[in-house]
Write a protein that binds this DNA or RNA. Structure first.
Lengths: 109, 109
DNA sequence: TTAACTATCTTGCTTTACATTATACATTAT
DNA sequence: ATAATGTATAATGTAAAGCAAGATAGTTAA
């Protein structure tokens, strides 16, 4: 089988940023959302990613109590994060259209 | 700027396999083809990749004289390589549709 | 008190892309 | 001659990101 995790590279970062840009939310919720949308992401992938995004200034965090379980760390997207997301989207459309073009190419051309 | 090379991960392997599956060809030619189709791949990426694909039995190689310059190493796809390519294509369509779905999602949903 | 679910984080490993460098043949310009 | 350019392949070392595995901890229900 093809290594799915290599293909997902980079896309998790962009998609996570998009999810946070849609609404203020927290790690565990993002994890569940990604995995119910075709991804297969583990905690060992997402939490270091969120810390990285925060460290780079793309998102900012605050703690809030959960109605069930330990405190949640909520994230909101920053101005810089919005720009980074836009850059990701442009990058993604360029690359995905290149891949689609090559996959659609035929032996006779 | 978003790190394009992270997004290209895995796609270069699949696209290279597709190109070789279309016609028997050699490294330098694949490099030029990829870069004239939206990619920006260097020798340091492609040649190790070709050796890896060969080592894994997805492609097989033979040397042939070039009309201008040193000998070329031509590659053909193997049966196992065709299966691997098919697996890549399925994987790609799954992931790209997931990414497109998330990128299309809105703040209000 | 044990299990299950929620919630975050760390460590060490693997893979892949990239920069850089080396090698070498052929053609063209100086 | 020889220097530069284009063609052609390969090796080495580095960085980034995803993953497995495990640690920690609060809540709820059996």
């Amino acid at each position: 089988m093809f290594d799915k995790s290599q293909l997902m590279r980079g896309t998790i970062e962009g998609c996570t940023l998009k999810i946070i840009s849609n609404e203020t939310t927290y790690g565990y919720d993002i994890l569940v959302y990604l995995n119910s949308n075709g991804f297969s992401v583990t905690e060992g992938t997402l939490y270091p990613l969120l810390l990285r995004l925060e460290k780079n200034g793309y998102i900012s965090a605050f703690m809030m109590d959960s109605p069930l379980g330990p405190k949640r760390k909520y994230y909101t997207i920053t101005k810089s994060g919005k720009e980074h997301l836009k850059s990701f989207e442009e990058c993604w459309y360029t690359i995905s259209s290149s891949v689609n073009k090559i996959l659609a190419s035929d032996s006779d051309e």
